[in-house]
Design a protein around this nucleic acid. Sequence first.
DNA 1: AGTGAAACGACCGTAGA
DNA 2: TCTACGGTCGTTTCACT
Lengths: 155, 155
Amino acid sequence: MAPRNRPIALDEVSKAIIEQLQEDGRRSYAEIGKAVGLSEAAVRQRVQKLQESGVMQVVAVTDPMQLGFYRQAMVGVRVTGDSRIVAQRLGEIPAVDYVVLTAGSFDILAEVVCENDDDLIELLNQEIRRIDGVQSTETFVYLKLHKQLYNWGTR
Amino acid sequence: MAPRNRPIALDEVSKAIIEQLQEDGRRSYAEIGKAVGLSEAAVRQRVQKLQESGVMQVVAVTDPMQLGFYRQAMVGVRVTGDSRIVAQRLGEIPAVDYVVLTAGSFDILAEVVCENDDDLIELLNQEIRRIDGVQSTETFVYLKLHKQLYNWGTR
DNA sequence: AGTGAAACGACCGTAGA
DNA sequence: TCTACGGTCGTTTCACT
């Protein structure tokens, strides 16, 4: 199913299902059914529709810290020319896990994941600032992640 | 299992398993086993360990756009006093889905999700700027999300 | 949109290399 | 850490509401 233009309104049952899958994406349909008061088949149908409509997906999420990537940062980028082309280049860098075009004093925000400070310096100097059209960057090194939600709009 | 201090090194098989679960978090252990060349039980054991060690989790992720939240923004916050206390307050706001303490010209970066511009203005004026210790904010409205990765360190 | 039932397949514990 | 296997439980399909 293609993404829609109109918002999809979730009823309380679908929100409850998403909440169950937020706690554990591998929880069985039967178990979710018990929790939300629906049969297993009904839960399965709703989950399928939520996925097909693009409202929700169930995915594996990894923790960079646990994998030895101790430095994360948000890099604000000011661009000359077409920011989409710069965004494309940024996205091709493996250490860049998040790229968004913005309005404001930065044209692009890019989140980066590195093992240590040396890698971050290398990434900024040798990769990011060398991209054609990157005018200036400003780096915000992460000190502590305080909140991270994956399920917007379900609370 | 408690989070570790030392990085966990993933072998190619575990990376392949995470990649499978990245494509579809509900894929069966048996199917993953076929794809990565392992028995169903072995896949199950590895997934369990990856989850218990905190390296990986399988979760539901929702798309704000599909739910009618058409405005997202990153808000850079400058703080007087203890940034942890401000971060705590920010995190209590439902529209705030991401809060990180940073070093740089902002003390905190907070991502917000709103239905429209009016809600964003309301959020900034009535909620965020009213928090004790918030000295100034700078808002970067999202124009286009270009890249979003959930599985750092597995490629 | 939802339920229920039967066949099938996945999951889980345990044993053994 | 892996495979093998049997019991249990979850999933799938389909007929029905």
